[in-house]
Design a protein around this nucleic acid. Structure first.
Lengths: 132, 132
DNA sequence: CGGTATCCCCCCCGATACTG
DNA sequence: CAGTATCGGGGGGGATACCG
């Protein structure tokens, strides 16, 4: 185990490429909350994360937008923001049970996409062929 | 049974109030496709519908936007558009199997909303109380 | 490190009017 | 009946720069 001695559970580092911009997930016909809410939930599912930690896989998101997303999620009770007054400052975002309750839905969306998204994309491509 | 003698299955008329604008579904943190795609799928789940038939429950949607939504869905293989050259003209929209495959996801979203949306809205209200 | 502050653009969506 | 044409706004989101 690589848990810190303090007992605070530190999940494994986030894979910076967990949201491959080349994968067709951008065509996924689902959204949870705002544009990035679903991905933030994914990033937090294994435990608390810091702002900069989130920025690695979400490097396509500007800090302004990420901050807005996080504040909206906090307002809606999907996560909690905890700031420890240390130096340098440390802030942690943690999913609430309400936020966690969305995980099965995200799983279902991902499963749908794995099995059906290729058909949707094929249909789309076929249509642009016959009507350019 | 009130099926037409021709054998074409005519589903029961759509409830014009099936999407009550006063219900909090507008706050549902889910979207399938464009803004109205999910509701169109719901409207079609019992069988083919005509354009004007869809406009009853979707009276908040202008014909232009409804038409755009339907064309996008056809392009993506979610429904088929069949026009019979009769007078007056008749056009029917029917879900494809791909379109139908989204129904379980819409069900899951609805179930989530019934059980959890009140908490989300309560959290939101609480936040505006303490920070107006 | 963990954000704000500005500026700005795109595009989804709506209102209104008209047509084969 | 089943749409299209045209115009316009609003806001979510991105680029860039700056701050405690």
């Amino acid at each position: 185990m690589t848990d810190s001695p303090s007992g605070t559970r530190r999940p494994a580092p986030l894979d910076p490429d967990m949201f491959d911009p080349l994968c067709p997930s951008s065509a996924m016909p689902f959204r949870v909350g705002d544009k990035w809410t679903g991905m933030v939930i994914r990033c937090l599912e294994d435990g608390p994360r810091r702002f900069t930690e989130l920025r690695a896989p979400l490097r396509a998101v500007t800090p302004k937008v990420l901050s807005e997303t996080l504040r909206a999620m906090e307002r809606d009770g999907l996560l909690t923001r905890t700031s420890y007054d240390e130096n340098p400052p440390r802030v942690e975002y943690t999913l609430t049970p309400l936020g966690r309750s969305l995980l099965p839905l995200l799983d279902a969306a991902r499963t749908w996409s794995r099995t059906h998204l290729p058909l949707l994309l094929a249909a789309r491509t076929a249509h642009e062929q016959e009507a350019p």
